[in-house]
Amino acid sequence: MIRSRGEIWFQYFNVAFLSLLSLSMILPFIHIAAKSLSSEAFVLAKEVYFWPKGFTLSSFQYVLENRQFFYSFTNSVFLAVVGTALSMAITILAAYPLSRKNVPFTRFFMVIIVITMFFSGGIIPTYLVVRDTGLLNSIWSLIIPVLMSPFNLILIRNFFMSVPDALEESARIDGASNFRILRSIFVPLSVPALATIAMFYAVGYWNSFFNAMMYITERRWMPLQMLLLQLISEEGVNDLAMIDAFQEVTAETIRAASILCAVVPILCVYPFIQKYFVQGIMLGAVKG
């Protein structure tokens, strides 16, 4: 391959620029990891950068032995797995009929659904609904109110619409039912899109925080992100002056270890889904 000097310089520049960019994202992780493996004194003195000082695993031991962390972790895993599965099921089942041209009132239902993207009931009415349905302090309060995202529904619907009608017709001639067509034709053809949406849902559930703050007061059902915030957020001077003044502030190293334990699991999901991400983008591009 022949390259002009300009192109070569451009490549050098690219490599340098992108390396810097990735470093700016990776270094904070390494910094936190180093902190979590260091002893408290060095962290407080701000002497730990990218390599642990006074190596110790005690903060990880503390985090992993902590029952509340275990509860919150399993809550979040439950949310991410069960919530995503339910959300995907509901979204697909809604998107398929809405994408078919021979179903009446689809436009009307789409309008209704789109309206919810721009208007909501507000915090207090929503809270009342959740309370009156008996969902307060239940993990389902973090799933049911956010079961379907209209945005994701529209994405999947558009994807289904791009599947040729002929495929559906031929299946129907072979005697396939609606459900069979969805299961054997639409879903397999849309795996890249579905994987992407599933990822959106899973990350959303994993990060669910605001609803948890509103609906969960029992610590047993607290998801990980809420626990993390309580561990990490700084005590203000005013808080310290209050009744809790004597309480030891959570150690920096334990904060760091908690962050790692909370972030790494969801991070591990990305590499497995990544190939679908790429496919999904390409498919959209060709059809679009």
Partner: peptide
């Protein structure tokens, strides 16, 4: 015993008082 969240406590208090429960 129940506890208020560490952050946004005042928002939660308003919601609880408004809800009547």
């Amino acid at each position: 015993y129940e506890t208020l969240p560490k952050d946004n406590a005042s928002q939660k208090i308003s919601v609880i008082l408004a809800s009547g429960d």
